[in-house]
């Protein structure tokens, strides 16, 4: 029996970039009948296996409008991970993302895993944020980076897998003793440089 670990994950990003679409896609695919449904799409949960553990993501969506910005700390408080979403067709949303990165660095939980998701990559023809640019930025802050398409279910699963892998296992000894786990586990990204 694997232990279930509850992980609070906070979703940040401009309104309309597809925060909740990504999570709805993540939760709806492979629908798990064991999981009691939540009352609405602002809070969703999904459990995925990771190594010796089961990670139950408790996903907290936030309102992206400026007026709700001041409430954000209540949402990211206690989060194990934050997914900051921008829209690759909206440069503004990428700027907003950077504000969130900054705020998290300054006020977020220590050791919070930050993932940057460039959504709507199915709309490459009207792209405003080059992937390279965003990727470099992500590397500069040692964040996970991935471009997704909630609409086409591209990279959604992967996004959360990457997060799972960066969550340190509760019992490191168990991990050591489990060879297969060790082998399949990807080393944590080594992005430490700042440029």
């Amino acid at each position: 029996e694997m232990a279930i670990r509850e992980l609070k994950v906070c979703l940040l990003g401009d309104t309309g970039v597809g925060k909740s679409s990504i999570v709805c896609r993540f939760v709806q695919d492979h629908f798990d009948h064991n999981i009691s449904p939540t009352i609405g799409a602002s809070f969703l949960t999904k459990t995925v296996p990771c190594g010796n553990e089961l990670h139950k993501f408790l996903i907290w969506d936030t309102a992206g409008q400026e007026r709700f910005h001041s409430l954000a700390p209540m949402y990211y408080r206690g989060s194990a991970a934050a997914v900051i979403v921008y829209d690759i067709t909206k440069l503004d949303s990428f700027q907003t993302l950077k504000k969130w990165v900054k705020e998290l660095k300054e006020h977020g939980p220590e050791d919070i895993v930050v993932a940057i998701a460039g959504n709507k990559n199915d709309l490459g023809d009207i792209r405003e944020v080059p992937m390279k640019e965003a990727k470099e930025f992500a590397e500069s802050i040692a964040a996970i980076f991935i471009e997704t398409s909630a609409r086409n279910a591209v990279n959604v699963e992967e996004l959360f897998q990457k997060i799972s892998r960066q969550i340190p296992p509760l019992d490191p000894q168990d991990v050591e003793s489990n060879e297969s786990f060790k082998l399949t586990r990807q080393p944590p990204p080594a992005y430490k440089r700042c440029c």
């Binding site: 309102a63 409008q65 409430l71």
Partner: peptide, 26 residues
């Protein structure tokens, strides 16, 4: 939670659309 559920139900209005926090919190 029951109140929130009711609000969702009204918002969705049988459209099947899912509303995230961008719509729900306001």
């Amino acid at each position: 939670l029951r109140v929130c559920k009711l609000i969702y139900t009204i918002m969705e209005d049988n459209s099947g659309r899912k509303y995230g926090a961008d719509d729900f919190l306001p």
